[in-house]
Each structure stands twice: as structure tokens, then as C-alpha cells.
């Protein structure tokens, strides 16, 4: 039976460690501050920003969530971002995406100061990460890295296969793991690869985010694989008829052959909010000269 990589439990542990780092910052008179910007009233975005707000408050991070009306102009949005950029009490800034269609999301992301861009979406952070320099990284690849390491799995000498090549997961994860200091063999595999099986079967560590329920089955992996699932698919539950969240792995099938596996929900998902907190604390430490 595979070990379940528990994102909730791991998250809780990381939060305990963050509390100590936040206390150390407090000793220097610094309280980490996180600002989020939500435009409009999309219920999904509203509940997500609430999660982040709660997480910040639970850790003693100063949280200032800015809720702006849907009809705000680009200029007004940029002014708000600029105000947060100049606010010394704010160490991290994120924009809750997607923005309403009339706003230029790219331009807004570029307006966030790279040193406060705790989501790692500013082009300067994207570029630096790929150039092997210190940079803020998106929460998902950070969460994947943390969970693998915290369960004690080595990356050095391992074959990592990432079935996802987008800007939020596959590419930043590759930029983290394709480093001489890590020593892994990293495969970036577009989901369109005609012989996908040849690659997934090679993986010691398999990361999948294709949003196809049950896409990776037990016959597509090797025994002892560490399988990481960041798929999000909503399927009707056969008994209740209610929608439920499932990942890209055939979870029950893989349980028997994998060394370790992340569940959906309860795997990488819960890690992402915590990773945003981690990046915020790091931003505060950098600003305070502690990192």
C-alpha cells in the first residue's frame, strides 16, 4: 500500500514552523504583511481570497485584502497596486485571478513590485527562476517540492517526469528541479506526446496536471513510483449526485503499485495557500535583512 502524502498534515507542520519565523521577525519589530486584491464578486475567487485571509490571520501575518468593484478601471487598479507597492507594512502582494475581462491581467501582474510578487507571476521572477537565480515561485510547484522533500524522498539521481508544461506548474517546477544542486533528471512532457506511456513508465517521481479524471492508470507507471496529482476535475458522485473533486490519477488503482501518492482533495491543494504564506514570510525576512 502506498504512503498517502497528506497535504493538510504537511501544511499544518509548515505553519508551525512559520509561526516561529514570524515570532523571530516580531523580535526585530517586523510583522509580515500580505495584501490581496480581488476585483468583482466571483464566488469562487471570493471564497479563495477568504481562505488566504484566514490563513494569514491564523499565523499572525497582517492581512489586508482589498475588494474592488467589478467595474473598476485599469487605471484605478494600477493605482491601488502602486499604493500597495509603496506601503512598507505590505511585504507580499497577490492578485486574485482571473480579473474581469475588461482589465489587462498581464499589465496588472507586471505592476506588482517583483520583490513583493509572492505568487511569482511577475516576468522578472519568471525569467530569474529559469535563469537559475533567486526568485519568488508560484505556490503549486513550491507545494509539490515541499511535500516530496518533507516525506523524505530524495530527488538526486531520480527520474522526474512532469506531464504538464504550463506556466503555473510544469515550467516553474522544472526550473526548480533542473538545477545542478538538485541532481535529478527532469522530463518536461507535453500531454500531447504521442508515446506518453514511454515516459510515465520511466518516472521515479511522476507529476501530473492535465485535468482529465483517472488519466494515469496503474499500468502507466512503474512499481514504486511517487505520484503527485494536481488535476482538478469535478464529477457527479454516483450515489449522491453531488459534484465531487477528483484528480488525474486513478487513485485506487495506483494505491497498490505506488510508493507514495497525493490524494485529491487533501494533497497539493491545501499546500498552495500555505506556500503563499511561506513566500510572504520570506519576503518579510528579505526586507528585514534576515534571509
Amino acid at each position: 500500500m502506498a504512503t498517502i502524502l497528506d497535504g493538510r498534515e504537511t501544511s499544518a507542520k509548515i505553519k508551525e514552523e512559520l509561526k516561529q519565523r514570524i515570532a523571530a521577525l516580531g523580535g526585530k519589530g517586523v510583522r509580515p504583511g500580505l495584501a490581496g486584491v480581488l476585483v468583482g464578486e466571483d464566488p469562487g475567487s471570493a471564497s479563495y481570497i477568504k481562505l488566504k485571509e484566514k490563513a494569514a490571520e491564523g499565523l499572525g501575518i497582517h492581512s489586508s485584502m482589498v475588494r474592488l468593484p467589478a467595474e473598476i478601471s485599469q487605471q484605478q487598479l494600477l493605482e491601488k497596486i502602486d499604493q500597495l507597492n509603496r506601503d512598507g507594512a505590505v511585504h507580499g502582494i497577490f492578485l486574485q485571478l482571473p480579473l474581469p475581462a475588461h482589465l489587462d491581467e498581464n499589465a496588472a501582474l507586471k505592476a506588482v513590485l517583483p520583490g513583493k510578487d509572492v505568487d511569482g507571476f511577475h516576468p522578472e521572477n519568471v525569467g530569474k527562476a529559469w535563469m537559475g537565480e533567486e526568485a519568488f515561485l508560484p505556490a503549486t510547484p513550491l507545494g509539490i517540492d515541499e511535500i516530496v522533500r518533507r516525506y523524505g524522498y530524495e530527488l538526486a539521481g531520480r527520474r522526474v517526469v512532469i506531464v504538464n508544461v504550463d506556466n503555473l506548474v510544469g515550467k516553474p517546477l522544472a526550473s526548480m528541479w533542473a538545477q545542478e544542486s538538485v541532481g535529478a533528471v527532469v522530463t518536461l512532457c507535453p500531454p500531447t506526446q504521442p508515446n506518453l506511456l514511454h515516459f510515465t513508465r520511466d518516472a521515479d517521481i511522476l507529476v501530473v496536471a492535465v485535468d482529465k479524471p483517472g488519466f494515469i492508470t496503474a499500468d502507466m507507471v512503474k512499481n514504486g513510483v511517487i505520484a503527485i496529482d494536481f488535476g482538478a476535475n469535478y464529477l457527479p458522485d454516483p450515489t449522491t449526485g453531488k459534484e465531487r473533486l477528483v484528480g488525474d490519477l486513478d487513485f485506487d488503482g495506483l494505491l497498490a503499485v505506488a510508493e507514495a501518492i497525493t490524494p485529491v482533495p487533501g494533497g497539493i491543494g491545501p499546500m498552495t495557500v500555505t506556500m503563499l504564506m511561506l513566500s510572504t514570510v520570506r519576503a518579510a525576512e528579505l526586507a528585514a535583512g534576515l534571509a
Binding site: V185, T187, L188, F199
Partner: peptide, 15 residues
């Protein structure tokens, strides 16, 4: 990768 290859980034010290 941008040209849709599947890319395997090997560290030169790979075993």
C-alpha cells in the same frame, strides 16, 4: 519544449 518536444534535462553527473 516550445516546439512541442518532450525534453529530458539531464544533469551531467547523472548516474
Amino acid at each position: 519544449l516550445n516546439r512541442w518536444a518532450t525534453v529530458i534535462l539531464c544533469d551531467y553527473k547523472t548516474t
